[in-house]
């Protein structure tokens, strides 16, 4: 099972994601914004990153491109979990190097099966 870094500024969403992923047997690291996520990402090599877009200090898109600049994370799957579903946002995410886009509200079981696909 994988180590997953989940990033969201909302405590409730963070808990829900953590609960879902841990329910799927994964180890979860949590961060509340991009800056915190980068700190954790540098400390431990996560197998996958799931991040929100709108967060204070550093948003998820910036985080994605920052992560892509770290050799360990160049090919790791980075999923964006957000309520944004506009093509513009998706294009920005894609340009930053995101692997996939999950629109909130998300279905926990679908999230898990998606993870199985990308891991």
């Amino acid at each position: 099972m994988a180590t997953i870094l989940a990033v969201d500024d909302s405590p409730s969403i963070r808990q829900l994601v953590a609960m879902t992923l841990e329910g799927g047997g994964h180890t979860v690291k949590l961060a509340e914004n991009g800056i915190g996520a980068l700190d954790i990402a540098k400390e431990c090599a996560a197998d996958l990153v799931i991040t929100d877009v709108h967060m204070p200090n550093m948003d998820g898109i910036t985080l994605t491109s920052e992560l892509r600049g770290i050799p360990e994370y160049r090919y790791k799957p980075i999923l964006i979990l957000t309520t944004e579903s506009s093509p513009e946002f998706k294009a920005r995410g894609k340009a930053a190097g995101a692997t996939g886009w999950i629109v909130k509200p998300f279905d926990p079981s679908a999230l898990l099966s998606l993870l199985d696909k990308v891991l």
């Binding site: 690291k29 949590l30 431990c44 279905d107 079981s109």
Partner: peptide, 19 residues
């Protein structure tokens, strides 16, 4: 679906301090 989930977590220690 979520209510079923939730198993114990060992790897979470470092994360909670980061929160």
């Amino acid at each position: 679906a979520v209510a079923v989930g939730a198993s114990s977590s060992n790897g979470k220690n470092s994360s909670s301090t980061k929160e």
